[in-house]
Simulated assay, not measured.
Amino acid sequence: MATKSFVNLYGGVYEHSPWIAERLAEGGISLALDDPKTLASAMQVVVERATRDEKLALLRAHPDLAGKLALADLTTSSRDEQQGAGLDQCSAKELARFSELNDAYKGKFGFPFIFAVKGYHRRDILAAFERRVNNDIETEFNEALQQVHRIALMRLQAL
Protein backbone atom coordinates (compact mmCIF):
# COMPACT_ATOMS: atom_id res chain seq x y z
CA MET A 1 0.00 0.00 0.00
CA ALA A 2 1.29 3.46 -0.85
CA THR A 3 2.16 5.72 2.08
CA LYS A 4 -0.52 8.26 1.23
CA SER A 5 -3.20 5.57 1.02
CA PHE A 6 -2.02 4.03 4.28
CA VAL A 7 -2.17 7.39 6.09
CA ASN A 8 -5.57 8.17 4.58
CA LEU A 9 -6.92 4.85 5.84
CA TYR A 10 -5.20 4.64 9.23
CA GLY A 11 -4.32 8.26 10.08
CA GLY A 12 -7.47 8.68 12.16
CA VAL A 13 -7.02 5.56 14.28
CA TYR A 14 -5.27 7.71 16.89
CA GLU A 15 -7.48 10.75 17.51
CA HIS A 16 -6.35 13.72 15.39
CA SER A 17 -2.83 12.23 15.22
CA PRO A 18 -2.01 11.10 11.68
CA TRP A 19 1.70 11.44 12.50
CA ILE A 20 1.59 7.94 14.00
CA ALA A 21 0.49 6.32 10.73
CA GLU A 22 2.92 8.56 8.82
CA ARG A 23 5.91 7.46 10.93
CA LEU A 24 4.94 3.82 10.65
CA ALA A 25 4.63 4.16 6.89
CA GLU A 26 8.04 5.87 6.70
CA GLY A 27 9.56 2.73 8.22
CA GLY A 28 8.01 0.61 5.50
CA ILE A 29 4.72 -1.20 5.31
CA SER A 30 4.71 -4.94 4.82
CA LEU A 31 2.10 -7.68 4.59
CA ALA A 32 3.05 -8.61 8.16
CA LEU A 33 0.96 -5.61 9.27
CA ASP A 34 -2.15 -6.96 7.55
CA ASP A 35 -3.82 -7.87 10.84
CA PRO A 36 -5.46 -5.47 13.32
CA LYS A 37 -3.50 -6.70 16.35
CA THR A 38 -0.15 -6.63 14.57
CA LEU A 39 -0.84 -3.20 13.10
CA ALA A 40 -2.00 -1.92 16.50
CA SER A 41 1.23 -3.20 18.09
CA ALA A 42 3.35 -1.52 15.43
CA MET A 43 1.49 1.77 15.88
CA GLN A 44 1.89 1.48 19.65
CA VAL A 45 5.66 1.18 19.20
CA VAL A 46 5.62 4.44 17.22
CA VAL A 47 3.88 6.14 20.15
CA GLU A 48 6.23 4.59 22.70
CA ARG A 49 9.22 5.97 20.75
CA ALA A 50 7.69 9.46 20.59
CA THR A 51 8.82 12.26 22.85
CA ARG A 52 6.90 13.03 26.02
CA ASP A 53 5.64 16.24 24.40
CA GLU A 54 4.31 14.26 21.42
CA LYS A 55 2.59 11.81 23.75
CA LEU A 56 1.08 14.70 25.69
CA ALA A 57 -0.18 16.24 22.44
CA LEU A 58 -1.73 12.86 21.56
CA LEU A 59 -3.55 12.77 24.88
CA ARG A 60 -4.69 16.36 24.49
CA ALA A 61 -6.12 15.54 21.04
CA HIS A 62 -8.86 13.50 22.73
CA PRO A 63 -12.27 14.95 23.58
CA ASP A 64 -13.88 15.27 26.97
CA LEU A 65 -16.28 12.46 27.82
CA ALA A 66 -20.04 12.97 28.05
CA GLY A 67 -22.43 15.71 27.29
CA LYS A 68 -24.70 16.51 24.38
CA LEU A 69 -22.76 19.68 23.59
CA ALA A 70 -19.46 17.80 23.61
CA LEU A 71 -20.85 15.28 21.12
CA ALA A 72 -21.17 18.05 18.51
CA ASP A 73 -17.38 18.48 18.23
CA LEU A 74 -16.33 14.83 18.10
CA THR A 75 -14.87 12.79 15.30
CA THR A 76 -17.29 10.22 13.94
CA SER A 77 -15.44 7.42 15.76
CA SER A 78 -15.51 9.22 19.10
CA ARG A 79 -19.17 10.14 18.71
CA ASP A 80 -20.15 6.55 17.92
CA GLU A 81 -18.07 5.22 20.83
CA GLN A 82 -19.52 7.68 23.34
CA GLN A 83 -23.08 7.15 22.14
CA GLY A 84 -22.60 3.39 22.35
CA ALA A 85 -21.76 3.78 26.05
CA GLY A 86 -24.82 5.97 26.61
CA LEU A 87 -22.78 9.09 27.29
CA ASP A 88 -25.20 11.11 25.16
CA GLN A 89 -28.04 10.08 27.50
CA CYS A 90 -26.66 11.26 30.84
CA SER A 91 -29.07 12.52 33.43
CA ALA A 92 -28.59 16.12 34.56
CA LYS A 93 -26.87 14.83 37.71
CA GLU A 94 -24.52 12.54 35.74
CA LEU A 95 -23.73 15.28 33.27
CA ALA A 96 -22.92 17.69 36.09
CA ARG A 97 -20.62 15.10 37.70
CA PHE A 98 -18.86 14.37 34.40
CA SER A 99 -18.39 18.10 33.96
CA GLU A 100 -16.94 18.52 37.47
CA LEU A 101 -14.62 15.56 36.99
CA ASN A 102 -13.53 16.73 33.52
CA ASP A 103 -12.55 20.11 34.98
CA ALA A 104 -10.77 18.62 38.00
CA TYR A 105 -8.98 16.01 35.89
CA LYS A 106 -7.75 18.43 33.23
CA GLY A 107 -6.71 20.87 35.93
CA LYS A 108 -4.66 18.20 37.67
CA PHE A 109 -3.19 16.34 34.70
CA GLY A 110 -3.27 18.80 31.78
CA PHE A 111 -5.09 16.43 29.41
CA PRO A 112 -8.63 15.02 29.21
CA PHE A 113 -9.76 11.83 30.89
CA ILE A 114 -9.41 9.03 28.33
CA PHE A 115 -11.30 5.78 28.60
CA ALA A 116 -11.90 3.16 25.91
CA VAL A 117 -15.67 3.23 26.40
CA LYS A 118 -16.73 0.41 24.09
CA GLY A 119 -18.47 -2.31 26.08
CA TYR A 120 -18.95 -0.13 29.18
CA HIS A 121 -21.98 1.69 30.53
CA ARG A 122 -21.74 5.34 31.53
CA ARG A 123 -22.00 4.39 35.23
CA ASP A 124 -18.91 2.15 34.87
CA ILE A 125 -17.07 4.97 33.14
CA LEU A 126 -18.06 7.46 35.82
CA ALA A 127 -16.81 5.06 38.52
CA ALA A 128 -13.46 4.71 36.73
CA PHE A 129 -13.29 8.49 36.38
CA GLU A 130 -13.93 8.93 40.13
CA ARG A 131 -11.11 6.49 40.90
CA ARG A 132 -8.55 7.68 38.34
CA VAL A 133 -8.80 11.37 39.16
CA ASN A 134 -6.97 10.47 42.40
CA ASN A 135 -3.95 8.94 40.60
CA ASP A 136 -0.55 10.61 40.51
CA ILE A 137 0.58 12.20 37.22
CA GLU A 138 2.85 9.37 36.05
CA THR A 139 0.34 6.63 36.80
CA GLU A 140 -2.40 8.52 35.00
CA PHE A 141 -0.23 9.54 32.05
CA ASN A 142 0.61 5.87 31.48
CA GLU A 143 -3.00 4.74 32.03
CA ALA A 144 -4.27 7.34 29.56
CA LEU A 145 -1.78 6.11 26.95
CA GLN A 146 -2.90 2.51 27.50
CA GLN A 147 -6.51 3.60 27.01
CA VAL A 148 -5.50 5.38 23.78
CA HIS A 149 -3.92 2.15 22.54
CA ARG A 150 -7.09 0.18 23.41
CA ILE A 151 -9.16 2.69 21.45
CA ALA A 152 -6.79 2.40 18.48
CA LEU A 153 -7.01 -1.41 18.50
CA MET A 154 -10.80 -1.32 18.58
CA ARG A 155 -10.86 1.16 15.71
CA LEU A 156 -8.50 -1.01 13.67
CA GLN A 157 -10.65 -4.07 14.34
CA ALA A 158 -13.69 -2.11 13.15
CA LEU A 159 -11.91 -1.17 9.92
Score class of each variant (00 low, 15 high):
Arg150Asp: 10
Ala152Leu: 04
Asp73Trp: 11
Leu126Pro: 02
Leu33Ala: 00
Asp103Thr: 10
Asn134Lys: 14
Ala50His: 10
Leu39Tyr: 06
Lys93Trp: 04
Asp124Lys: 15
Gly28Phe: 08
Ile151Leu: 07
Gln157Asp: 05
Lys106Met: 08
Thr51Phe: 03
Ala152Tyr: 07
Thr51Val: 00
Arg132Trp: 08
Ile20His: 04
Val7Lys: 01
Thr76Asp: 15
Phe109Thr: 06
Leu33Tyr: 10
Leu39Arg: 12
Ala61Thr: 06
Val13Asn: 02
Tyr120Leu: 11
Leu71Ala: 11
Ala144Val: 10
Tyr14Val: 12
Val148Arg: 00
Gln82Lys: 08
Asp53Met: 04
Glu130Ile: 06
Asp103Ser: 12
Lys4Cys: 04
His121Glu: 13
Lys108Val: 06
Gln82Cys: 08
Met43Asp: 05
Gln89Met: 11
Phe115Leu: 15
Gln146Pro: 01
Asp124Ser: 13
Asn102Leu: 07
Ala32Cys: 03
Phe111Trp: 11
Val13Cys: 10
Leu159Pro: 00
Phe109Asn: 04
Ala50Phe: 10
Tyr10Leu: 08
Arg132Gly: 07
Ser30Leu: 04
Leu145Cys: 10
Leu101Asp: 07
Leu153Ala: 06
Arg150Ile: 07
Thr3Gly: 06
Gln89Arg: 15
Ala66Asp: 07
Cys90Lys: 01
Pro36Glu: 01
Phe115Ile: 14
Thr76Asn: 11
Lys37Ala: 09
His16Cys: 04
Asn142Glu: 15
Lys106Asn: 09
Glu15Trp: 00
Arg49Val: 09
Lys55Gly: 10
Ala128Met: 12
Leu126Lys: 02
Ala32Lys: 14
Asp124Asn: 13
Ala152Gln: 05
Gln82Gly: 05
Ala85Glu: 02
Leu65Glu: 04
Val133Met: 01
Asn134Thr: 14
Ser77Asp: 15
Ile151Lys: 00
His16Ser: 11
Gly67Tyr: 09
Pro18Ile: 07
Tyr10Ala: 02
Val133Tyr: 00
Asp124Tyr: 11
Ala72Met: 14
Phe6Ser: 05
Val133Asn: 00
Ala25Phe: 07
Ala127Gln: 15
Leu71Cys: 02
Tyr14Arg: 09
Val47Gly: 02
Leu95Asn: 15
Asp53Gln: 13
Ile114Gly: 05
Asp64Ala: 13
Leu126Gly: 06
Leu59Gln: 05
Asp73Ser: 15
Leu39Met: 09
Arg155His: 03
Glu15Lys: 00
Leu24Trp: 02
Val46Tyr: 05
Ser41Gln: 13
Met1Cys: 07
Phe6Gly: 05
Leu145Trp: 08
Gln89Trp: 04
Glu26Gln: 15
Glu22Asn: 04
Val47Ala: 02
Val133Asp: 00
Ile29Leu: 13
Glu140Tyr: 05
Gly27Trp: 01
Phe113Ser: 06
Gly28Cys: 08
Asp53Ser: 13
Ser99Ala: 12
His149Trp: 12
Arg23Cys: 03
Tyr105Asn: 05
Gly119Glu: 04
Ala42Ile: 00
Arg122Thr: 08
Ala57Gly: 08
Ala72Gly: 03
Cys90Tyr: 01
Lys108Ile: 05
Ala96Trp: 08
His149Phe: 13
Ala144Asp: 09
Val148Asp: 03
Glu143Tyr: 14
Ala66Thr: 02
Val133Glu: 00
Ala92Asn: 11
Met154Arg: 15
